[in-house]
Amino acid sequence: MANEQSNSANPNVDLKYRRKKNAEEMKHQVISFTLMIFFTLIAFAAVGIEGFSHWFIKPVILLLAAVQVVFQLYYFMHMKHKGHGTIALFLFSGLAVGLITVLVFTTIVWL
C-alpha cells in the first residue's frame, strides 16, 4: 500500500503538472500571508491610533481575527482541499462548544 495514488501513464508529464500546481498553490499561500499581515496591521493600528470608540474597535478587531483564522485554516492548513468534510465537522463542533463556554463565562458567572 506504499503508493495508492495513481500517477498518469507518463510520470514526467504528471510530475510537471504537479510541480506547477504546487507552485501555484504556494503563490496563493503567499497572497493569503500578505493579507493576514495586512489585517494584523489594521488591528494594531485601530488600537494604536487614538480616537476610535471601543464599541467600534472591539468588533472590528474580532472580525479581523476571525478572517485571519479562516485564512490559516483554509489555506495554510489546506482545509479548502477536498476530503476535509469530517475534519471541518469536528473542528467547528469544537468551536461551537468553545463559543458556548466563552458566552457563558462572560454572562452567567456572577460578574
Partner: peptide, 24 residues
C-alpha cells in the same frame, strides 16, 4: 492525519475554556 485534526478539535475546546476563564 485525521487523528491529529480531531485532536486539534479537542485543543480548540481546551483553549476556549482557558479564554473563557481569562475573560471571566
Amino acid at each position: 492525519y485525521l487523528g491529529f485534526w480531531l485532536f486539534l478539535g479537542g485543543e480548540t475546546v481546551l483553549f476556549a475554556s482557558l479564554f473563557a476563564t481569562y475573560l471571566a
